[in-house]
Simulated assay, not measured.
Amino acid sequence: MLTSLRSACLSTRCYSTLVNPQSATTEALAYVSHSTDPWFNLAFEDWLFRTSSKPSHVLYLYRNSPSVIIGRNQNPWKEMDLKTLTMLGIPFVRRRSGGGTVFHDLGNTNYSVMMPQSVFNRRDNAQLVASALNQLRVPATVNERNDIVVDGYKVSGSAFKLTSSRAYHHGTMLLDSNIKTLSQALKNTNHSMITKGVASVRSPVKNIVEWQSSITHDTFVDAVIKRFEEHHKVDKKIVVSDIDESVLKEKDGDQIRKLRDELQEWSWHYGQTPEFTVTFSTSIEGADVNAEITSKQGKIIKMDVSGLSEELTGQFIDKKYGFVQASDIQTRSQKEKSVVEWLIECM
């Protein structure tokens, strides 16, 4: 695998084929992905977390092609502009951890630190990454929310996941991301939506290159690995496994592929959405029309629309929110058809 990559030990890193996190003899491992597929990278992270040995500390670094990543308990219709994303050809992915929505592109590098749950400390992990930036002459600090900031600007958002024995803390690092596209992707004007999901906390952001223009993905990756190695004070150099999608052809490839496919299933992608209620208003043929729609697990469970009969609105029940087609609904008049088309457009 990755035969074009270096295989010799360097002064600070060792390159190798995939080291199985379950059978590794060392308690500190690092993995660097050369894939930019968000579905693969998040699935590989999940596989690492599930299979790494209980006492091990694991570092995983990767970056994705343009995509929006939401927390497991978030509402995609609330957190982003889905129509703009579709127009731009940018997918969204629901990750396994909680936390808020973030934008990924090749100017953003992602880090994930896994460890025993008994020693998990979110601030310590953020501080490890911030100190790597300090070594690159970036005055990064960790604020009270455990976000990494520089001069008051957020450069890294993070989230975490805990189980009975393991934990991980992962986050973004805005090195040279497209801030304009980030703003477009995360803009949402649907203020009438009331959701039980976790809302993102918006903060002013900047790229690291605003402070150090020479920093790249590779220099950041090397700096974080170095700090990870220093933090664990290991006698031998940490083995760094460079991986890409070719691991899908290896022994554990089926497990990783299964996790990747699960992320794309409608039941997870949309069906994980917590219950929400949204209201819309318009005027059709001179009459005011007000609608209230409630959705749970991505499906419509209740709908009240002024001017439409319960029989007609009942046709929407149990259908996937945002995926209803005009052909799915039988109307009896032009006005009903106009109202249905409006409702579909609103969703």
Results as ranks from 00 to 15, higher is better:
residue 1 M to D: 15
residue 2 L to D: 07
residue 7 S to H: 12
residue 10 L to D: 14
residue 16 S to R: 00
residue 22 Q to D: 02
residue 26 T to L: 01
residue 26 T to A: 08
residue 33 S to F: 05
residue 33 S to K: 04
residue 35 S to H: 05
residue 38 P to W: 03
residue 39 W to Q: 03
residue 44 F to S: 02
residue 46 D to H: 14
residue 50 R to Y: 05
residue 51 T to W: 09
residue 57 H to K: 15
residue 58 V to H: 07
residue 61 L to A: 09
residue 68 V to L: 06
residue 68 V to D: 02
residue 69 I to D: 02
residue 69 I to T: 07
residue 69 I to W: 03
residue 79 E to S: 10
residue 82 L to P: 06
residue 86 T to C: 11
residue 92 F to K: 03
residue 106 L to Y: 05
residue 108 N to W: 03
residue 113 V to T: 11
residue 115 M to R: 05
residue 124 D to T: 09
residue 133 L to W: 10
residue 138 V to K: 00
residue 139 P to R: 14
residue 147 D to A: 12
residue 149 V to I: 15
residue 151 D to C: 09
residue 153 Y to N: 13
residue 154 K to T: 06
residue 154 K to Q: 15
residue 169 H to F: 10
residue 169 H to Y: 12
residue 172 T to Q: 09
residue 180 K to C: 09
residue 181 T to Y: 08
residue 188 N to P: 05
residue 189 T to K: 10
residue 190 N to A: 12
residue 190 N to C: 04
residue 203 S to R: 05
residue 205 V to T: 09
residue 212 Q to G: 09
residue 217 H to E: 12
residue 226 K to N: 14
residue 227 R to M: 13
residue 230 E to C: 08
residue 239 V to Q: 14
residue 240 V to M: 00
residue 240 V to C: 08
residue 241 S to P: 09
residue 243 I to V: 15
residue 248 L to W: 07
residue 248 L to E: 03
residue 249 K to G: 10
residue 253 G to I: 01
residue 254 D to A: 15
residue 258 K to H: 14
residue 259 L to R: 07
residue 259 L to T: 03
residue 266 W to L: 05
residue 268 W to Q: 03
residue 280 F to C: 12
residue 288 D to I: 02
residue 289 V to N: 03
residue 290 N to L: 06
residue 292 E to F: 02
residue 294 T to V: 06
residue 294 T to R: 14
residue 295 S to C: 15
residue 295 S to N: 10
residue 296 K to Y: 11
residue 301 I to C: 15
residue 302 K to E: 14
residue 309 S to C: 05
residue 318 D to S: 12
residue 319 K to Q: 12
residue 331 T to K: 04
residue 333 S to C: 08
residue 334 Q to D: 13
residue 339 V to P: 00
residue 342 W to D: 09
residue 345 E to C: 03
residue 346 C to G: 05
